[in-house]
Amino acid sequence: MTTLKRDARIVGLIYLALIVSAPFRLIYIPGALFVHGDSATTAHNIASHELMFRLGIFGDLVTGVVSLLLTFSLYHLFKDVDKKLAALMFVFGFMDTPLYFFNTINDVGALLAVNGADFLASFSQAQREGLMTLFLRMHGEAISCAEMFWGLWLFPLAWLVIKSRFVPRLLGYWLIPNGLAYLALCVSGVVFPAVEDTVSQFAFPLQLAEVAFALWLVIMGAKPRADGLAMPARS
């Protein structure tokens, strides 16, 4: 196995780890515990399944670390294709990690509001449920903002894939609409929340590009150029 193929497969495994870890707090926890428009039931579910909710917080921390590892690994894999473009990808991709870490504060706040009957004794049950809802909505709004960087980093990555010639160009071209889908979700979530669900339905098929890219790297790795020439680093 060539060094290039080995490195590509490692990157693919890290990418798959991100794809598996990210939806736990993003999709599973809200589906399992949150009831739209019913803060009392949501608070009860969080209190009754506190360990699950805490695992969601920890999952976001893990996702932030894995995201940073992925960004660095992709930079290492593609830096000889175009160093400046790889650096741009790294900068946009790096922003994912602090956003994940800072956003856990909102979940911690929601959990404290649910369980803070002692130090929040001056607050009524309804007020504490209102605080919980505020923190959860702030978490959701932060996710909408983070989608800006989830989309932007895919554009330099897509161009690196296209230029590399050791990964199918089709995957690079598919990553471009994947990035546009995240930008559309960001705009709808921040500016036009009434249409966010509709945009999400159209965006989902486009977002499968990252899954296809990760699976290709794990299964196929990367194929060195047929001419055997090293790819020049761009200054």
Results as ranks from 00 to 15, higher is better:
F53N: 10
F53G: 05
R54Y: 08
L55M: 15
L55T: 08
G56C: 05
G56L: 07
I57R: 11
I57V: 15
F58W: 11
G59Q: 12
G59I: 04
G59S: 15
L61N: 09
T63Q: 09
G64I: 03
V66E: 02
S67W: 00
S67F: 03
L68V: 05
F72Q: 09
Y75D: 06
Y75G: 00
Y75F: 15
L77K: 07
L77V: 06
F78Y: 05
F78M: 03
F78E: 03
K79F: 07
D80G: 06
D80M: 06
D80H: 12
V81H: 04
V81I: 14
D82W: 05
D82M: 11
D82Y: 04
K83P: 00
L85C: 06
L85A: 10
A86M: 01
F92S: 01
G93H: 01
G93S: 05
F94Q: 00
M95H: 08
M95A: 14
M95W: 12
D96V: 07
D96T: 10
T97N: 10
P98G: 13
Y100R: 14
Y100P: 00
F101P: 04
F101E: 03
F102D: 05
F102T: 10
T104F: 10
D107H: 15
D107T: 13
D107P: 00
V108K: 06
V108M: 14
G109R: 14
G109V: 03
A110M: 05
A110P: 01
L111G: 04
V114A: 07
N115L: 09
G116K: 07
G116A: 02
A117K: 13
D118V: 10
D118H: 13
F119N: 11
L120M: 15
A121K: 14
A121Q: 14
S122D: 14
S122F: 11
F123G: 01
F123R: 11
S124R: 13
A126C: 01
Q127H: 03
Q127R: 06
Q127N: 10
R128I: 01
E129D: 12
G130R: 01
L131A: 04
L131T: 06
M132D: 04
L134H: 11
F135M: 14
F135E: 09
F135V: 01
F135G: 02
F135I: 02
L136R: 10
R137A: 12
R137P: 02
R137C: 10
M138Q: 12
H139L: 02
H139M: 04
A142G: 14
A142L: 14
I143Y: 15
I143L: 13
S144I: 08
C145V: 13
E147S: 07
E147C: 05
W150T: 01
G151W: 04
W153S: 01
W153M: 04
W153V: 01
L154I: 06
F155A: 05
L157R: 06
A158D: 02
W159F: 13
W159T: 08
L160M: 09
L160R: 00
I162M: 15
I162S: 07
K163R: 15
S164P: 02
R165F: 06
F166V: 09
V167H: 03
V167Y: 02
V167W: 00
R169M: 07
R169E: 10
L170P: 03
L170N: 07
L170G: 03
L171F: 07
G172F: 03
Y173G: 05
Y173P: 01
Y173C: 06
W174K: 00
L175F: 07
